[in-house]
Design a protein around this nucleic acid. Structure first.
Lengths: 241, 241
DNA sequence: CGGGCCTTTGAACACCTTCAATCTTCGTGG
DNA sequence: CCACGAAGATTGAAGGTGTTCAAAGGCCCG
């Protein structure tokens, strides 16, 4: 629209940030061009292969990051190995636990993922001097809290079939943001991951997927590719009214 | 210590706030005396009897509040009546979901509770003009997110016995903040509430309590009064290493 | 002391898990 | 291009943990 001013504005923005999606929805959208320039000097892009854990549970944290592409799973492990995925993060989510020196969970790329890494000090300084940034992070924390509590209902009170349907509905909502009816997507998680997200076993997940398929609520190809002909039926199977 | 300046400072603080605990740990600690004066004009104390629901799921929100005394349970209900408690709040927690017009869950006093109620507009104006307040609320949101995710592990991966022990350990930690060994407290929840918090039935909760009692990990008198002779054993029974 | 509610206890059952075998998919190398 | 092997997914049968249904016991308050 206003090509002149946007050209000028872009002129101020670091080259690496110019094509970055996170600049619009992510934390960087709360920063001024000058702050972006400063931050970009200390930040770096990183590619993480599927299955790579890049933050360990209990590990001390020296950096934050932004997801540019991909899906990250956050998980907790008990001493005897039992595991629970406590959150999935998608682009352009911010990752890290502000104001806490160590991570209370592990972070692992569910599929091939790209992140932009910022030094911890730089972010904390920016938060202190940029109310808009703290507001944005506060909003994301509240959104994640809402999601965590929704999932507590799923974990505590839903049946295996409802749990699996809830998971599929969650992924569908992140794939086709505004699809009203049909939906198609690739599952970012293996059956084992889905089980750890739902508090079930691999076998139960598999059986419930088969059941949903036989009931015509979903179609599955090559294990990961899912088609949902009628989202309404899936949501109903998830127990969400 | 400096009695003069503290007298002057107290002189600026509204009478109703002077003896209020929340002024130290709660949201009000982030406000200046002048802001406190202004806010107190529009706020009011309220006593809520045990079992009274004072915010409904899906209800539109016109106020926030601070817990002065008591315990509040936050719960979600499914269409068919299945219920899950998704959080417990203690004094001096702030209650309400900033930046969202309606509540995604119900709030009910678990025991007799006192709260200080603020009009929504007043709080949102204060947040916008007081970075320290937003920081405090952000910190509380992150703390609640940590708690919610810890509980997801409990709901998804722990056995009934570990769940009940986890609940008792949680209550113990809120009763005797720094007790190293022994602990005594009154349970703020009925067996039915505990079941809804743990994703179990009343009967299973009862059976596991009996089991913990027979194993000597806890003592119970009059259903609600619990003594924990050795917190270490309870924590171990909760599966926390 | 009686009534109601909450809690405990018991027995049968169901759902999910466990253990085990088979099948599919996909990457690798011949 | 196909064959092979490993990893992941599905399916089956048996078993266990927690649920459901039912009854009895205990606590609180009139």
């Amino acid at each position: 629209m206003d090509t002149l001013s946007s050209r000028i504005q872009n002129g101020d923005v670091p080259a690496v940030c110019r094509s970055c999606e996170a600049r619009h929805g992510g934390v960087c959208s709360a920063l001024t061009p000058a702050q972006l320039v400063e931050l970009s000097k200390h930040s770096s892009r990183r590619t993480i292969d599927a299955g790579t854990e890049f933050i360990g549970q209990g590990e001390s944290i020296s950096s934050y990051s932004n997801i540019l592409k991909g899906v990250v799973k956050l998980s907790k492990v008990m001493a005897d190995g039992r595991q629970q995925i406590v959150g999935l993060q998608f682009a352009p989510d911010f990752m890290g636990r502000p104001f806490l020196g160590e991570s209370r969970m592990a972070a692992e790329a569910a599929i091939d993922t790209e992140i932009c890494v910022f030094p911890r000090r730089a972010i904390e300084r920016l938060i202190a001097e940029t109310p808009g940034l703290e507001h944005l992070l506060h909003s994301q924390a509240l959104k994640e809290l809402d999601e965590a509590r929704d999932w507590m209902l799923t974990l505590g009170r839903k049946t295996a079939q409802e749990k699996v349907a809830s998971f599929l509905a969650l992924i569908a909502s992140h794939s086709d943001p505004e699809a009203e009816e049909k939906s198609m997507f690739e599952l970012p998680l293996s059956r084992a991951d889905i089980a750890d997200f739902l508090g079930l076993t691999i076998e139960t997940v598999s059986r419930q997927m088969t059941k949903l398929r036989k009931e015509g609520i979903i179609q599955i190809e090559n294990n990961r590719h899912v088609t949902v002909p009628d989202l309404g039926r899936l949501v109903a199977a998830a127990g969400n009214d």
